[in-house]
């Protein structure tokens, strides 16, 4: 198991380097230049050249990227051009907001999809089942930003229950978490339903019933535990989506998280900040996927046996 984890961690290094490479080059290809935004309007070419040197933006793209990567490998993510502060501390400052939104939305998604998916599977082909299918289709096909705008329209403009934007407290969290959670609930409901349907006709459930296990426990204990693997897989990628997919939602709700920070960095051509943010996103996503893979082992002893081989 430890060997497996170490191997996975080592494999992350090339992935992360590739990501910085792609982002750095794409940012460089984008029209516009951070220097032209930072320099005063009447700056002379010499002044601009000096600014370039000051920000480490002189030389060819290869040289610049090389310098960036070298510093990154030494644990230095550079300084944001615009905020004039270390990228890492800006990131850390915004991280709690993003994590809060991600976990709140996952919670919403789980609270909707697990009961709904299980009920749909145990009442296969009933109206409840049909309802769950329609609902998950709706939630998957509805763009999150549109749902967000709709919720703002209803709850902020019309009923004035929740604020339309900001990130000052719990009250501000509800609408974005609902939006993101509902969007993710669709996929999760679908998977819960289908993996429960796969399990529900297994012989070992009949064995459990024949032992005198109550129907409730048969479903929640014996069946759900077996259906959990595909559910956890989707849950992991959902969490990844919640980190990355929050970009649009954070913008719609003016939620001060990393997503919004990244959008700002890209708009300002803030090379170090944008690359740094996306680097950290990638790291978080990879870590989540690793945690998911480890979680399999705890859910299914057969997977654990495979790891230890």
């Amino acid at each position: 198991m430890t060997r497996y984890i170490v191997r996975r961690l080592l494999l992350m290094i090339p992935v992360l380097i590739c990501v910085t490479f792609v982002v750095y080059f794409l940012m460089d290809l984008a029209p516009g230049d951070v220097i032209s935004q930072l320099a005063p309007a009447d700056a002379t070419p010499q002044q601009i050249e000096m600014l370039r040197e000051e920000y480490g933006l002189n030389g060819t793209i290869i040289e610049r990227y090389g310098r960036y990567l070298w510093r990154l490998l030494h644990g230095d993510m550079g300084t944001s051009f615009f905020l004039k502060r270390p990228v890492f501390s800006v990131f850390l400052e915004r991280l709690p907001n993003t994590l809060m939104l991600a976990f709140a939305s996952i919670l919403v998604a789980i609270l909707i999809s697990l009961p709904l998916g299980i009920a749909a599977a145990t009442h296969h082909r009933s109206w409840l089942d049909g309802f769950s299918v329609v609902l998950s289709m709706l939630s998957v096909s509805m763009p999150a930003f549109w749902l967000g705008l709709l919720l703002i329209f209803i709850f902020s403009l019309h009923w004035k229950i929740f604020p339309s934007g900001g990130s000052e407290g719990l009250k501000y969290l509800i609408l974005p978490a609902l939006t993101l959670g509902t969007e993710q609930a669709g996929n999760l409901t679908r998977i819960t339903r289908s993996s429960m349907l796969d399990v529900i006709h297994q012989d070992y459930l009949r064995t459990a019933r024949a032992k005198g296990v109550s129907e409730k426990k048969v479903i929640r204990h014996h069946a759900l535990r077996n259906a959990l693997i595909p559910i956890i897989t989707v849950l992991g990628s959902t969490l990844g989506n919640a980190f990355g997919g929050a970009v649009a939602i954070e913008t719609v709700f003016a939620w001060n998280g990393i997503g919004r920070l990244t959008v700002m960095a890209i708009n300002n051509r803030d090379m170090t900040l944008a690359t740094g943010c996306i680097f950290m996103f990638t790291l978080m996503l990879n870590m989540t996927l690793l945690v998911v893979d480890i979680a399999y082992a705890y859910v299914d002893p057969r997977v654990k046996a495979r790891y230890s081989k």
Binding site: Y204, T207, P301
Partner: peptide, 13 residues
Amino acid sequence: FQDPMTALNPVFT
């Protein structure tokens, strides 16, 4: 039950 391969729940000891 007839088939011992499927009659036991794989995730419990």
